[in-house]
Design a protein around this nucleic acid. Structure first.
Lengths: 128, 128
DNA sequence: CCTTGACTTGGAGTTAACTCTAAGTGTTAT
DNA sequence: ATAACACTTAGAGTTAACTCCAAGTCAAGG
């Protein structure tokens, strides 16, 4: 699969895909004769994984380290697990933060809705 | 309350507090004789609100607009409510994204734990 | 053969949100 | 009263994560 198709399918610009590869956020992609990237199934799965992790805000630095470890083979399994566990905890904390903010937003929206209703009532009684 | 105390209490650097005020993310803070900021109860509540919103990733631009509207008084209530509703929806979507990533992380961690157990079993049978 | 258009690289530019610096003023403790 | 320190401003610098650009290669259609 060529870069344009991958870009289209996952909503990641070709520039960003090349950037990800350049910095080691995804492993090197094979090229055809003319040096043009030909993404394999495995490459695609890497992109899906990275897209998911990035969408949740995991830092690129950490993911680069993870990818590096995967490429080193089985003796890095323990280290990889630790990275994921660490990131999992941080992510869970962020989600809780955001849930708190969501609740506050919901509360404030309700307050505004009541305020608007009040104003409409006043308007009506003023008209009477 | 002086800037150092506010900074300490909310874990926001004095630089950032001044920056927030400069760009209109919090309303102007009163000064004492020598031009030094003296944060009121209301200022403090703004800071708590902004801290909460920022911790969930709401963009500064949007919050500046919200603060601007609040300062214009009651005729902006409808517009303010719309901003909050809009941000609420975006936040809910981000939380769902992140929850999906959290699930994937949990799954992957479990896979790693099994892989490690397998390796230990092999080691044991190799020793026997 | 020549143009069009997708691709390549290395490197510069952009954006959001701080974070720091310089130069100066005001306050406080000895 | 003078040294040390907190504060002021305007503006420059930093960081993460892209995003764009220039210059060049290559395959395919007219």
């Amino acid at each position: 699969m060529k870069i344009a198709e991958v870009s289209e399918r996952y909503g990641i610009s070709p520039d960003t895909l090349r950037f990800y590869e350049r910095i080691g956020l995804i492993p090197p992609v094979n090229r055809n004769g003319g040096g043009i990237r030909d993404y394999s199934e495995i490459d695609i799965r890497w992109i899906e994984f990275i897209k998911c992790m990035r969408s949740a805000g995991l830092p690129i630095e950490v993911l680069i380290e993870y990818v590096r470890l995967v490429q080193q083979g089985d003796q890095t399994i323990e280290a990889r697990k630790e990275i994921l566990k660490d990131q999992r905890e941080q992510l869970a904390a962020r989600i809780m933060e955001m849930q708190k903010t969501l609740n506050l937003l919901d509360y404030k929206i309700k307050v505004y809705e009541n305020a608007i209703l009040e104003k409409e009532k006043e308007l009506l009684s003023g008209e009477a």
